[in-house]
């Protein structure tokens, strides 16, 4: 028999990891094409609130997931428009996307604060009391499995398909990509919106499954941890998934430390994921000697001088 506390820890780790991973994977795709989007936090928030409102009003969870994805993707198209088409600063635009996303979702969600969802995303397989790790995994809901599929598909598309190679070419060498005749603006625009869609799915997971209610600022920095995860994963899907499990484990471990005999103020426990994220980033950068493997053109808007 594995004890029940440990299973709880595994379950919480998987859930926290799913949330972080989907958002990080979306950001990875955008960054691969050379578009840095610091608006992850805002996009997750938009996805979370729109999915939640749909779920409260329609009780149709499938529709809610779709609405969350689409609205976050549309929202990210603001960033794509400003940075890809109008060639403005990606850092500024992304930051404002976060600020706008957080305030907009607070405005939209105001009437829904404190409301409880009657329906919740159920596990794919009907398991009453999971008693081992396999059953814990099987008891996860549909978005967990979508995350796994997305991981495999994204890794395949980026490495093995023409579209993926184009994204990488644009992210690594704009001039060559341009002379090869690739449609740079179009590819970057699509990659950014796909990134937004992923963040939206992550947001829907937050409000339909992780914590089934809505409050202001409930994303609590997860978008930023997702950004750190992309760096941690060295812009590779599988390594990012590993990072998500690690960060998810740390997030899940915090509130449980007491049960394992560590006396710690709950307020201090709350800040440990952020402390650890910073420390991990520092250690990782030292190990890689400053060369994190980032796409070379990240943050640089493409502009072909008039000929």
């Amino acid at each position: 028999m594995i004890d029940i506390q440990f299973l709880g820890l595994v379950n919480a780790t998987l859930q926290a990891a799913t949330l972080l991973f989907i958002a990080a994977l979306g950001e990875l795709i955008a960054e691969k094409s050379g578009v840095l989007n610091l608006g992850v936090e805002g996009m997750i928030s938009i996805g979370a609130v729109s999915g939640f409102i749909t779920a409260i009003n329609t009780e149709n969870l499938f529709l809610s997931i779709i609405v969350g994805i689409v609205s976050a993707s549309l929202f990210s198209s603001i960033h794509a428009f400003v940075t890809v088409i109008l060639k403005q600063d990606q850092t500024v635009s992304g930051l404002i996307l976060t600020i706008l996303g957080l305030s907009l979702s607070s405005l939209i969600g105001k009437k829904y604060v404190g409301k409880k969802l009657n329906t919740k995303l159920e596990g794919v397989f009907d398991i009453e009391n999971p008693s081992n790790i396999l059953e814990i995994i099987l008891a996860q809901n549909i978005i967990f499995y979508i995350a796994i599929i997305l991981m495999i598909v994204t890794a395949f598309v980026l490495k093995r398909t023409m579209f993926g190679r184009r994204i990488e070419a644009i992210g690594e060498d704009l001039k060559s990509a341009d002379s090869m005749g690739l449609k740079i603006g179009k590819t970057q625009f699509i990659a950014t919106c796909v990134g937004g869609a992923f963040a939206g799915l992550s947001g829907v997971y937050l409000t339909l499954s992780y914590v089934p209610y809505w409050t202001d600022g409930m994303t609590s920095g997860r978008g930023w941890i997702a950004l750190a995860l992309v760096i941690f994963g060295g812009w590779k899907p599988y390594r990012t998934a590993f990072g998500a499990l690690l960060f998810g484990f740390l997030e899940a471990l915090g509130p449980r430390l007491q049960t394992y005999g560590f006396e710690m103020s709950p307020y201090i426990v709350k800040i440990t994921p952020y402390v650890i994220t910073i420390l991990v980033l520092i250690v990782l950068t030292i190990l890689k000697n400053g060369n994190t493997g980032a796409p070379k053109n990240i943050g640089i808007p493409f502009f072909r001088e008039n000929r």
Binding site: T91, S220, G221, I225, Y274, I278, L281
Partner: peptide, 17 residues
Amino acid sequence: GVNEIITTLLTNYIVFG
């Protein structure tokens, strides 16, 4: 050479906590 955008942002959550 650690990305300062992420570290300064995460510091906000630490200080608030």
